[in-house]
Structure formats: structure tokens, C-alpha cells
Design a protein around this nucleic acid. Structure first.
Lengths: 204, 204, 204, 204
DNA sequence: GTGTAATCGAGACGGTACGTCGAGTCTTGTG
DNA sequence: CACAAGACTCGACGTACCGTCTCGATTACAC
């Protein structure tokens, strides 16, 4: 897994005093705790600094905003060991596997509101938005894209399929429920989404 | 225009000095301007009060939080005169009409980030979330639900269709692009979504 | 005694919520305590706010800098009820009385270093310097000037005497010892100063 | 020029790497520039280090506080080539010569506020105060003392004259104007001071 | 030569205080 | 009552220095 450049010291020539790995971990731990127990709103630089036993300057040295910090904290929590794209031999099975895993990780409750807050920030601040998409969104989309491409290669769905739209068609409804909360984000729902989309794309 | 209950004085016997309609309009105008030009973050009670020439107490008397105020301000801007649910005779046409209208209204640029911020707030604050869903989400879902029910009645799609999931399948991908911004929210994309979903549901 | 405009609300038409006299007193008391027990350096806005149970914003509303605040605090402590200029019938007696009183008040120990710090600030910051001279220096000089003018009127000293220089000649040596601390600031020293200056001006 | 012990490496057997004369000069130059252009407040260890291209640790190795550094910097600037005590044959002439020289050096404008700040620090911090008096005040007082002693020897003034007080009587008024700035520190003022003090001491 | 020792730069670290801003609340006088 | 004005507490913001520390790299004397 690729971690943020901010979270890791440059591997090259270390000149001055090296970065304290202890401090880095303490900050991430404190941020994670605040994030998951009390939400993004509770992740203030002051609170994190106090809880981590670290000075605010140290945090600002490595994370420009609290959103960036929260993103890193979330990463250090949410990152799966080996997020291998599944291969069940069929598009329906592949997608089901992929979405099932995502829902499982994301349903550890506090993630809903945390992701919501991060997406909001991404929608508001273009810089953070780019970072968020690069580090969080794109890797997941890449996996999904792969599944659809394999299905095209197998002849399961049409060669002209708009893969980007297809990805949105499966992830969009899930995010919709996660963020809006108007209905539960269940595995059954994921199954329905997969069924409709696969059928709609001409799959079996 | 549908206004919030908060924005309207109790209809009963007014006892003291009546509410100033002037102040109400000034507040909404100021909030709207800040919201659309500089985002939700710029909608501070202080800024709105100063810009509207109104005291903060007056704002707090009628809107409990700045998010509520922003929602009202957005409403006063985004509310369509007669959002009649379309009837083209077929599901595909109905959905296309519905989504086309939504994309048009929502593409007036600043709405993306404003909606993002509101959804984030809704994901974070349950009280506001309920209000947001009731006033903003539910009306739109109701229209979409209606279209699918008509299609079922016409025999266009299966009687057992999960209408709630179907609604999420068409709105989800659109919100996904609006909020994440990883790809443009075009009418062509909406057409693709409609095509896949209608086909997936067994429609023609 | 004339107090600072900042320390007292305008007596005119009070529009909004009136200033809290309680807060004002608490701030001055806290500042005074810090000033006299631990010096000007300990008078930080944070410390005063914490000790007074008052928010920093409230302090900043009324005192632009901590030096201004310290000056006010010192005033509320050092201000004599009726600092009548003495009249013993002769210049020597008048001056002795005046300086004796000043030394007494100023020898309550911490004042030396506090005045030193304030004078330094006055020498550094022109705005504060003007305020300091107007509120602290000028009243004392006015009294001294009066004594010399009376002595001229009585024919005790020459009519052409440079009164400003004369004032510096009596106060200068005292401040010198107070600030530099190279020798004790005693009443005997004051007597010597008075003797030399009166004799030097042609007095008896 | 007398430099501080801190500013010079121990003359004993140097064991490790010798002190960098380059660094020492760069630090003093940077401190001087900051001191004279922007005041004592601008002499921060960080700023000096950055401006001198030197690490903070190097500064701390040789100067315990920024005030000590400022004092050294001032010294390297203010030190007169040959501060010979004058001898004109009479007390009045000697004092005039002495004070005239001091005023000239000190009137190079920024010195007023710099001295003010240093005196304040001396009044606040006893350790620095002792250093300041030893290195800056005492040498000048010694010269003045000498003049008065010579005048006593010549029979110009009484044998019982309090020399310490006499020194304060001439330097006090000058410092007073320098620090308070309520009136200009001119050569005419110095002449008046000398006249009054010499006359007051029974001199001709 | 080869230690041994003190220097140097760079720069991260825990702190403290800065001055500002926004949130909600409260207290006046006026309409 | 509603309203404007505006003072109040609280808490967070991002920055600036403080004085200390840990590095790797020099640069001398002493063996």
C-alpha cells in the first residue's frame, strides 16, 4: 500500500535530526481515536497534539491540514493487508466479492460519517479533493475497472462497454446509501446492484 | 416555493412585535450569496449577520444552526417552480427527463461543493441528516419511485422489482460523480445509466 | 485621577450590552498580581485570561497590548488618592517632599523592574511611548514644573531658569538609580540631589 | 576593544575542533543588523541563526541568552577607539567633553531604543543586570568618577563631595531624556546640566 | 596514522504564547 | 415581543520563538 509522502520521511540523505517515528505514530493513533469515536469534527490540531503528547508545530510540519491527517489516520486503520482483486471466473462473482469486502470494512460503523466528512471536504477543497481521489478513490476504481475489462476479454459483456460508467454504476449506489443513510447498506442491496448492472450490461 | 417551517412564524395569534419579513429576506440573501460564491465554510453566523445588517440573535431565533440556514438558502435558490414528475409513456423516457432536469439544475457550478458539504453535515449530525433527507432527498426519491411504479403497472418491468434499490441505482451514480468529481456529470452519462438500469431491470 | 479611555466605557449612549465591570476588575487584578509577583514577562494574555476567568477576546477588546494592560494595572495600584503638589514655602522643602513621596511609592520593590520594562517598551514602541508619557510621566512632571515656577515667582531662583531641564535634573538621577540599580535609591540620595540642584540654580 | 568572555574561546589548550571565527563574526553581524534596524525584539535566535547561516546550537554554545548576544553586538558597534578620560584643566570642561562624546555616540538614532530595551532587561533579570553594569555602565562611571576626584584634588569642589551622587547627577538627566524621550537630548541640555551641577557642587 | 574530542550545519522536538475568528449566549435600549 | 447592537465564554486556528536534542560531517591535537 502506498502511504502519503507526508507520512514517511524522505529515504535519501538525512541531514538534520531524523524524524521521530514515535511522534508520527502517536499522532496517527490520537487522530484515529478521535476520528472513530467522535468524528472528523473532533479532530482538532489542539486535541490531537494534546492527546499524542506532541507539539502542534510537529503536526503542522508533516500534515498541512487536519483533513490530510484524518485521511492518513483512516488509511492506517482501513488499509487491508492484501486487497487482491478477486477472480471467481465470472463478472457477477467478481463484483460481488469486491463489493462485499468493501461493505464489510466500511460498515464498521463510524466509517460512514467519517467518509462523508472527507468527501465533503474533497468536494469543497480542490487540493484535498485531488489527494483524496488519488489515494483513496483511484485504487478502488482501478480494481473495479480490472474486473470489467476481464469480463470484456472473456466476452461476457460487450467490447464497447463504458467501463468508467460501469464502475460508477456499481459503486455509486453503495456510496449513495452510505452517505445519505436513507436506507441500510446491506449485502443484499449489493447483490441487487450487481444483478441489475451485470444484466444491464448484457452479462448472464 | 416551499419554505422551511423554521423560516415562517407560527401561524397562531401573534402576540408581540411581528417577525420582520425584511430581516428574513436579508438573511437568506446574504447566506445564499456567501454559499454560492465562497462555499458553506464562508457561511458563518457573524458574516451573514454583518452582510444582512441583522443581529446574530435574530438569526438564531429562526435558524438553529448555520447548516439549517444554508439548506433554506439553497432551497430558495434551487427550488423548481413546478417539479412535475414527467410522463413520456415509457420508463426510459421518464427517467431520462427526470435526471436531465436534475443535472441541469445541479450543474450550475457551485452546487456541487455546497451539496457535498451539506451531505457531509447530514452524515455527521443525525438531526440535520433527518431534516436534509426529509426536505431535499425524499421529494426527489418520491418522484423517481413513482416512475418505477408506473413502469411496473405498465408491465414494463417485473412486479417484484425492488423500487428503493432501483431509485438508488439511478441517483447513486449521479451523486457519485457530483461529489467525488472523478469524472464529469454529463447528460451522456445519465443516458448510459438509464440504459443500463432499464435493461438490467428487464425493461426494453 | 484620569484613567485610560480603554479602561472605562464611553459615558455616552450605551447601545448594546454594557461592558462587564466584573470582567474589567478581574483582568486588572490578575494583571496586577502577575506584574508585581513575577514581572512584566509573566503578564501574558493567556495567563491573565486564565487567572481572571475571562476570555482572551475580552481582554483584546479593551487593551490592545499587554503593555497597555500592565500600565493600567500599575495605575490601579500606584495611583495616590490626592497627589497634591506640596507647598512648604521654599523650593528645597517642596522638592524634598515631592521626591520623598515618589521614592516611597516606588520602593515597594517590584516597581523598579516593572517600570524598567515599561520604559523599555516606551523606548521601543512609539505608540506606547506616547501613551506612557501622557499618562504616567507628564502628570509628575507637571507637579515638579509647578514647584520651580513658584520658586521663580518667589524670586528664589532666576527668572530665566530652564524649568524643563530643572525637572530632568531632579527626576533624572532618581530614575537612573531605579533603573540601573548600581546604587540604592535612598532618601539621603534624594536629599543630596535636591541640595545640589537647588544650589546650582542659585537657590539658598 | 573589550569583548565578553563568552565571545572568545578559552585560551588554554584547545583539544577538539577550534571555534570558527567566521561563525562568530557572522552571528555578531547578523545580530547587530537586526538590533539596529528593527530593535531588540527582532533579535530572535532563529532570525540571527538564519541570517548568519549558522545553526542555533552554535549560538547557544557561546551566548546564553539573546540579551547577552545583543550586548556583545552593541559593543562591537559602539565601542570607541580611545575612550580617554578628557583633561581640560577644569571640571566644567572635563564634564562637557565627556558628556558631549557620549551624546554624540548615543544619538546615532537606533541606540536610544536599544539601550532602553537592554536597561529594561537589566532591571528585570539580575544576572544580565550585573553583566550589563559591569561591562557597560561601570567603565563610563569610572571615567566620570575620575573627573570629580581630580576636581576635588584641585580644590575646585569640596573634599566631602559625594562622588557617586555627583556621577548620577550628570548622567541621570541624560539617560532620563534618552529613555523617556519627552525632550530632545541636545548638547545644550548637557551644557545646562553641567552648569547646574558644577555650580551646585560649589565649583566655579 | 589513528584515535579522541570538540566544533559545525541542519533541522526535528516539546512547549508557550501569540493575535484572530467563529460558535452560541446574554444584556442592554428601542420600536 | 422582535430587533440592533454588542459584550461575553469557549475553543480552535496557524505562526513564531524558545531552548534542547540528534544526526552526519569537519577539524584540530595527542598518541
Amino acid at each position: 500500500m502506498t502511504t502519503s509522502p507526508a507520512a514517511v520521511p524522505a529515504p535519501g540523505r538525512a541531514r538534520g535530526r531524523p524524524r521521530s517515528e514515535l511522534a508520527r505514530r502517536a499522532v496517527l493513533a490520537a487522530a484515529t481515536e478521535l476520528l472513530l469515536t467522535r468524528g472528523l469534527g473532533a479532530v482538532s490540531m489542539d486535541a490531537v497534539a494534546a492527546r499524542a503528547g506532541v507539539s502542534k508545530a510537529t503536526i503542522y510540519r508533516w500534515w498541512p491540514t487536519k483533513e490530510t491527517l484524518a485521511l492518513d489516520a483512516l488509511y492506517s486503520q482501513l488499509s487491508e493487508p492484501t486487497p487482491e482483486p478477486p477472480d471467481t471466473g465470472g463478472l457477477r462473482g467478481d463484483l460481488t466479492e469486491l463489493l462485499t469486502g468493501w461493505i464489510e470494512r466500511v460498515s464498521g460503523r463510524p466509517f460512514g460519517r467519517v467518509l462523508g466528512a472527507l468527501i465533503a471536504e474533497a468536494a469543497t477543497d480542490p487540493v484535498f479533493g485531488a489527494l483524496y481521489r488519488e489515494r483513496y478513490v483511484e485504487p478502488r476504481r482501478a480494481q473495479a475497472r480490472l474486473l470489467f475489462r476481464r469480463a470484456i476479454a472473456r466476452g461476457e459483456i460487450a467490447a464497447g462497454t463504458d467501463v468508467e460508467a460501469a464502475v460508477d454504476l456499481v459503486y455509486g449506489p453503495l456510496y449513495h446509501r452510505l452517505l445519505h443513510g436513507h436506507a441500510p447498506l446491506t449485502q443484499e442491496f449489493a447483490a441487487t446492484v450487481v444483478d441489475v448492472v451485470v444484466a444491464g450490461l448484457g452479462g448472464i
